[in-house]
C-alpha cells in the first residue's frame, strides 16, 4: 500500500457530495446565509452536526493512516493512534445517531475534505501537531459550544453524548502534546516545523473570523478556554490562538 496516499484517494459512497469548503461558503453567502452553519436554529444545528459527522469520519481515516504510514514510530505512539481510530469510529456512530435525532441523514449536506487534507502531513510529528493539537483543539471548541447550546435548548441527548465525545477529544489533544514532544526530542528543527504546521491549521480553522473568543451564543465558534486548558494547552498558546483569530480575514 502507498505511504502516504494521495488526498483524492479518500473513498466515499456515492451518496456523499464532495465540495470545496470555500465554494460551499460562497454559495451560502450568495444566498444571504452565514459562511458556515451557525447554531441559531435546529436546522442549522443539524447542518453543523453533519459537518462534524464527516469530520469524525475523516479523523478516523486520518488516524488509521497514521497507524499504517509510520511503522517505525514508537510502539506506544502506534497504540495511541490505534486507540484514536476506535474513539473516532464511535464518534462517527454518535454523530450519525445525533443527526437522525435531529431529523437529518447522511449526505444531506456537502462534505469538504479540508480536515482530511490536514491529516496527510508526511511527518508523524507534524501530523500529531496538526491533527491532535490543531484539529482536535478545534473539536474541543466546537463540542464545548454544542454542549452549551444543547443545554440551552433543553436537549439532554445531545448534551450528554457530545460531552463524552469532548472527553475523548481532550484525551486526543493530550496524546498530541505528548507525541509532539517525544517525536521531536533533540530535533528543534523538526519541532519548529511541526508547530508551524499546527499554526497554519489553526489559522485555516479560524475560518476567516468564524472562530472567535466570545460567548457561546454570540459567536459562531467560541474558543473553549477551559477545555483547552484541561487538554494541556498553555495560557500562552491559548492567547496566541485568540490573537490569530483577530487577524484572520473575514469572508
Amino acid at each position: 500500500m502507498e505511504r502516504p496516499i494521495a488526498y483524492d484517494k479518500l473513498a466515499r459512497e456515492d451518496r456523499f457530495v464532495r465540495m470545496r469548503a470555500r465554494e460551499t461558503s460562497e454559495l451560502r453567502m450568495a444566498q444571504g446565509l452565514p459562511p458556515m452553519a451557525d447554531l441559531a436554529s435546529r436546522e442549522s444545528i443539524r447542518e453543523r452536526m453533519h459537518g462534524i459527522f464527516v469530520g469524525e469520519l475523516q479523523a478516523m481515516e486520518g488516524a488509521g493512516r497514521t497507524v499504517y504510514d509510520f511503522p517505525d514510530a514508537p510502539w506506544e505512539f502506534t497504540m495511541d493512534m490505534a486507540r484514536q481510530v476506535w474513539d473516532e469510529s464511535r464518534h462517527v456512530e454518535i454523530y450519525m445517531d445525533l443527526l437522525e435525532h435531529m431529523g437529518g441523514h447522511i449526505g444531506e449536506f456537502p462534505e469538504s475534505t479540508i480536515l482530511w487534507r490536514c491529516a496527510c502531513a508526511e511527518d508523524a510529528a507534524a501530523r500529531v501537531a496538526g491533527v491532535n493539537r490543531g484539529l482536535e483543539g478545534l473539536a474541543c471548541d466546537v463540542f464545548n459550544q454544542l454542549i452549551h447550546i444543547a443545554r440551552k435548548i433543553g436537549d439532554p441527548i445531545i448534551e450528554q453524548a457530545v460531552d463524552y465525545v469532548l472527553a475523548d477529544e481532550i484525551t486526543h489533544v493530550r496524546m498530541g502534546s505528548r507525541w509532539l514532544n517525544e517525536l521531536t526530542k533533540g530535533d528543534p528543527h523538526r519541532r519548529r516545523q511541526a508547530i508551524e504546521f499546527q499554526d497554519t491549521i489553526d489559522e485555516r480553522f479560524n475560518l476567516g473570523g468564524v472562530r472567535q473568543d466570545g460567548a457561546h451564543d454570540e459567536v459562531s465558534i467560541s474558543i473553549a478556554r477551559e477545555a483547552r486548558k484541561l487538554a494541556g494547552f498553555t495560557d500562552e498558546e491559548i492567547e496566541r490562538l485568540v490573537k490569530s483569530t483577530q487577524r484572520s480575514p473575514v469572508y
Partner: peptide
C-alpha cells in the same frame, strides 16, 4: 488502519475502524 480511508462502504469502513 490503512484501508479505512480507501474503503467507501460505511459498514466496512467502520468495521475496520
Amino acid at each position: 488502519g490503512g484501508w479505512i480511508a480507501l474503503t467507501p462502504e460505511l459498514p466496512a469502513k467502520l468495521l475496520f475502524g
